[in-house]
Amino acid sequence: MPVTFTFGEMLSARSVIGTTLAELGKTHDNLWVLTPDIGATLVEFQETFPDRFVDVGLAEQVCVGIAAGLAYDGNIPVVSGMLPFLSMRALEQIRTDVCYPNLPVKIIGTHGGLVGNGGSTHYAVEDLALMCALTNMTVTSVGDPLMVGEVLRQSMTLPGPIYIRLAVGKKDKVLYEEGQHDVRIGKGIIARDGTDATIFTHGTTVAQALQAAEDLAADGRSVRVVDMFTLKPIDEALIAQCADETGGRFVVLEDHLAYGGLATRIADVVADRGIRLNAFERLGIPQVYAGFGDDEELRDKHGYGLAATVAATRRVIAHPSWASSH
């Protein structure tokens, strides 16, 4: 059999979206699913609830606009698509039509980060900066494919909009065992505990951070990994707690522009709360044209791959502390 790919099938998390939406459609008769021609994994919902499924074709702006209209009338619309196009082409609809009136529209999609080898048009690399800037928007980035279902389920009770970012690809690892963590929108997850430093991350790079922590453990380093899957509202208490418990040594790793995403969110909390750190490093995408290549190659090329993560974590651990240098 020839192998065919649609963007949907390439991502196991996508099938989780499909089954979760079909399940939620049964309990919520006001749940609608809309897509701009990215509907391959929405088939179950579409077949079960054809009256509440809308494929508008290549028209991201109208897709979000229609979702706003549906939400005004008491419905819960989920817009599923590719994030570079949803977050940018439809940005004004998201801001003005959805966020401003605080409507319960969910924007979920793929291609967050340098993933999928589509080239610069197909990488959403500034989406989290854009979404975090929007009033009322809850912003998430989910790496564990099963967690995607949990976040979607929880989002049903949110009064306002939410953005759910996924990567793309066949390599999505299930990171957590069922019930291992208390997954709650707005709360970070300590994916691995440690005391020498914390790596904060989200989405695709959670797996990489866990690997870095594992590699450093071989050297006797104890590194905490926090899956900060909610960027907004950010878990301020956990940031303060990690500063206390891991020597004020932070690495922020993300498949997003190094400035404007999680690192910026955390730096803001550190500044606003006057949290004293000993070392802070950010690893993410520089403002360059990213090029082609597979996900891992691109991360290495742009300085936020596994080796860079291990090296940065070593540096923050080795950095002299405030107390000793002053």
Binding site: N117, T121, H122, Y289, F292
Partner: peptide
Amino acid sequence: QLDSAYGMHPCKVQLPGVEAS
């Protein structure tokens, strides 16, 4: 492939000869 001028979508930055990315 990594650093190829030829990828899934045309990129003027990497491939002079195409008129726009």
